[in-house]
Write a protein that binds this DNA or RNA. Structure first.
Lengths: 131, 131
DNA sequence: TAGATGCATCCGCTTTGACGAATGCCGGAC
DNA sequence: GTCCGGCATTCGTCAAAGCGGATGCATCTA
């Protein structure tokens, strides 16, 4: 069933590149899951993409996503804690920006994978169809 | 920190690589968030890493993670729906495996980013410290 | 000084979703 | 044929976490 999207499936790179990294961390799993979960919320993901396009203040982010200021502030702090963005205080304004280029890589890669499985992904009812 | 890639992300490489992808999908955001959320659960992430090391049956996965069979079956189906793994029926056994090498890339990249921010990430109380 | 603005934190409320256990379905063994 | 074993699905329970609104603090302006 899962093989649906014909475009996928490149069984050429086995798992050689990964296994050495995977063997060691039993602890790390929880950490990485926490890291992924930060981007599992549509609001935070939208904020991150907004910040990938350039630095913005909290109020600009509030306008962009259309949620309450308190909520947006929490989401941005969460993204900062997880290392996706960095905060810069300037007087009474706080500017957020993406500092690590790998963040953009991660988003692009995920978008690519999600796009190739968008049909099955959209049909998956085991994860909230939120939005 | 995260010195990783020397050049600081933005000013010169604006968002050229990213923005064309970002501009279009308002719909896509929910999809990609769903995609990320699949890996936001420690159990599913552990299963995915187990499968990155090679093909396994459901019962092998049950033994590996130590949860109820029903739960593991649901998690595996979820990973399949999202395109992380593919299922193969062989008699009364179902084998799961990772078919797309980009999945390994995604996990490695996330591990790298999470490791560089493990201190702040571990301290983040805005996301469940679920083990 | 006082007043206004931007941001962070706290408080109930509500929904999401992970869990074990029970059940159903199918394929192989006898 | 019947029985057994592997997997998928469903149900009830409960913690995680998103939400708006209220509050507190710091900073800029008049």
């Amino acid at each position: 069933m899962a093989g649906s999207s014909g475009t996928t499936a490149r069984p050429d790179t086995p798992t050689a590149a990964v296994s050495p990294l995977l063997g060691e961390g039993g602890e790390q799993v929880g950490m990485v899951a926490k890291f992924f979960r930060a981007l599992g919320d549509p609001t935070r993901l939208r904020l991150l993409e907004f910040l990938l396009a350039g630095e913005h203040t909290v109020s600009e982010c509030v306008t962009h996503v259309g949620l309450s200021q308190g909520r947006v502030s929490v989401h941005l702090a969460c993204l900062a804690d997880c290392g996706y963005v960095a905060a810069r205080r300037d007087g009474r304004y706080t500017h957020y920006r993406v500092v690590d280029p790998r963040v953009a890589d991660l988003v692009v890669l995920a978008r690519s994978l999600a796009a190739d499985n968008c049909v099955a992904l959209a049909a998956c009812e085991r994860i909230t169809p939120r939005t």
